[in-house]
Write a protein that binds this DNA or RNA. Structure first.
Length: 236
DNA sequence: GTTGAGCGA
């Protein structure tokens, strides 16, 4: 009942170029911000178009919401409202049945393993930042199984990333064909460049990783890349 | 361009 023990606001509709600093600079005027952050995509690193701010005062949060909701920031209309409790795994579980007012005054119990384990202490050494399997403390390695398990984990992880990266390489290549401004990225490209386009054997064959899905009307799925840069009104 | 972040026993 009563109120939440935290005052966090969700900021949606942000421009791609808006950063955590932009949020803080725009909201700290309403009160002291304990935290101001813009959520970034894990696969591309760019902002996802929304962020969060945390106040140390309820009134500050209320004023910020009342003053900034529907306002324009960095050229985009932003949505400001109370943030969700962020629980239930990563909050990826979306349910249309739930409304925004749920949870604000609703009593709920904290899952013993939810965010409550934010300390991240492992059962082996009790230190945060890693799990028991990755515990650096040798006092509990239990017969060297730690090394084999770690090596196995490493190879599996690496292999998985390789497959994922390969998928992105094809995707990235598609953008490269349309716009080269993102196709020249070194880093990962340099590592798989020899395995990427070269894998096709011949790039003039016309047959690409799409499997020839195109060739008929309506074959185009996307007519616009997600890497659109917001502009302050035009660049001459 | 709309609810995050760290995956588990």
């Amino acid at each position: 009942m009563s109120e939440e023990v935290e005052y966090r606001c969700f900021i949606g509709g942000l421009a791609w170029s808006t950063s955590d600093r932009g949020l803080r600079d725009a909201f700290e005027k309403y009160g002291h911000l304990l935290e101001a952050k813009v959520v970034l995509d894990k696969f591309s690193g760019r902002s996802r178009g929304f962020g969060f701010i945390t106040f140390d005062e309820k009134k500050a949060m209320d004023e910020a919401i009342a003053a900034m909701n529907g306002m324009d920031l960095d050229g985009r209309t932003i949505t400001v409202d109370k943030a969700q409790p962020l629980q239930g795994g990563s909050g990826r579980d979306h349910d249309g049945d739930r409304s925004r007012d749920r949870g604000y005054d609703r009593d709920r119990s904290r899952p013993s393993g939810g965010r409550g384990s934010g300390g991240g202490d492992c059962f082996k050494c009790g230190k945060p930042g890693h799990f028991a399997r990755e515990c650096p403390d040798e006092s509990g390695r239990g017969g060297g199984g730690r090394y084999s398990s770690r090596d196995d984990r490493y190879s599996g992880k690496d292999d998985r990333y390789g497959a994922k990266d390969d998928r992105y390489s094809a995707k990235d290549d598609r953008y490269g064909a349309k716009e080269d401004r993102y196709g020249r990225d070194g880093g990962r490209d340099g590592g798989r460049d020899r395995y990427g386009p070269d894998r096709n054997g011949d790039r003039s064959g016309g047959r690409s990783r799409d499997g020839g899905s195109r060739g008929g009307p309506g074959g185009e799925r996307h007519s616009r890349a997600p890497y659109d840069r917001p502009r302050a009104g035009g660049f001459h």
